[in-house]
Amino acid sequence: MKKTITFKNMARQLKADLGGKDSYRGVTLTYTWLANQFGHFSLGFIPAFIAFLIMKPHMAPARASLNAACLISGTWLVFETINFLWPLTLGRKGGVKSYVFQPAWGNVAFDTITDLLFFWLGAFFCSLLCYDTPLARGVVMVTATLILYPAYYWYLTKMYLQAPGYPFQFRLSQWSTEHIAPEDIKLIKRFLDSNTMGMHLFLFGPKNSGKTSLSVAIATELSIRHYSAIYTSAMKLYCMFFEQDDDNTADVLWTWRKASILVIDDINPGDPVKEDLITSERFLGFVDALSTRDINRTALKDTNVIWVLGNDDKDRKLSANWQDMLYSIGVERDKMLSLNLQRHVPAARGARSKGEYDLQMQS
């Protein structure tokens, strides 16, 4: 059975984020999200307090406190609206039509609304402290109530994003190539939107063709949808084939066998390395470890897997060989998808503008 994150897992993660020193243990995505939202609250509170001090000598304290909160809240509304629309549309070369994969607009809009709620809560909480008015009290109560679900959703989402161990933060709308066939885009969307388990996507291509970026981007979108995922290199996975499942610690929410999405990177390097270091037959030999053969085969068969391999061509028939290997362990042919990136050269692989950063993991 595939694993999900429970309230107990969230409570344990929250306890870890709120206690201890990050100077020696590092920071997590959940900790970063908490710090980010505290920053949004502070950027509502502090400017509102400064504005109140400026307005107070010129008007009644009650009016000054409300005007300051409204001024700062309105300023952040305008700023966030521009910050949401400009980098992703008018400020991007080619505009909306330049995306190979459209951004998850609803997801980004929800993130923007969440930020605004924290801005407004900070501004009107400041107003309430400066001068207690029914309006400020009401706005604080309503805003604090509205924040509850977004806070739960985003904290949970950050847990789904940090558990896989992705090597970098990258969303699908950031991945671009100069040319990609419409059928290839449909193939990726088919893998993304499939409601059945046991789908397998093979990504072939040479060095710098964007295989890893694309695999991470696809898996990231599924993590944001709250699918349990694991990212690993082939070398690490070979050792994991021999391990028994142990996901009872705070650091291990699920093992590769209990994940819904598995990304296997660096199975073979591709050009300029011509030789395939691992063949499909050799890979199956690792799968069939003496004590874990059956559970390894079942896990691979029933998990959605992204395979990142080297070059493929008509003579080598790598795609056919790997599909035959999966078929031998019970994977149906119509659940195997193959995409060759050899003819696709990313236009800006790994390049991220500020707007694209906003699009990726702050949401």
Rank of each mutant, 00 (worst) to 15 (best):
G350V: 08
G74R: 13
N304E: 07
I72E: 01
D246M: 08
Q169Y: 11
K258I: 01
A289S: 14
D288T: 03
L214Y: 07
K97I: 06
K207P: 07
R352D: 02
R349S: 15
D266R: 00
S42K: 05
S215G: 14
L90S: 08
S173D: 13
A64R: 06
C126Y: 02
D302K: 00
L318A: 14
P269L: 15
I264M: 10
D22H: 06
T114F: 02
A348D: 12
A51I: 00
T279F: 04
R92H: 10
A109Y: 01
T81C: 12
Y152A: 14
G26A: 02
S176R: 13
A69F: 09
T32F: 01
K15N: 03
K21C: 14
G198P: 03
H40T: 03
Q13L: 15
G44F: 06
R316P: 09
E332G: 15
N340C: 11
M141P: 08
G165F: 01
I278P: 12
Y152S: 11
H179E: 14
F41N: 10
D247C: 05
S23P: 05
L214P: 07
L88K: 08
R316Q: 12
G285V: 08
R343K: 08
S280D: 15
T157P: 00
A348C: 02
Q362V: 05
A348P: 00
L172A: 12
M336Q: 13
K314F: 09
Y238L: 13
D276F: 01
N208C: 04
R257L: 07
P164F: 01
Q362F: 10
W175S: 14
Y152R: 05
T32S: 09
V108P: 03
R92E: 08
F242D: 06
F204Q: 04
A109V: 07
L277R: 10
Q244A: 13
D184E: 11
Q244G: 14
D294N: 11
N311Q: 09
P182A: 11
A163G: 12
G39N: 13
D313M: 00
S319R: 00
K93I: 00
W175C: 12
D111R: 15
R349M: 15
A104F: 08
S338L: 04
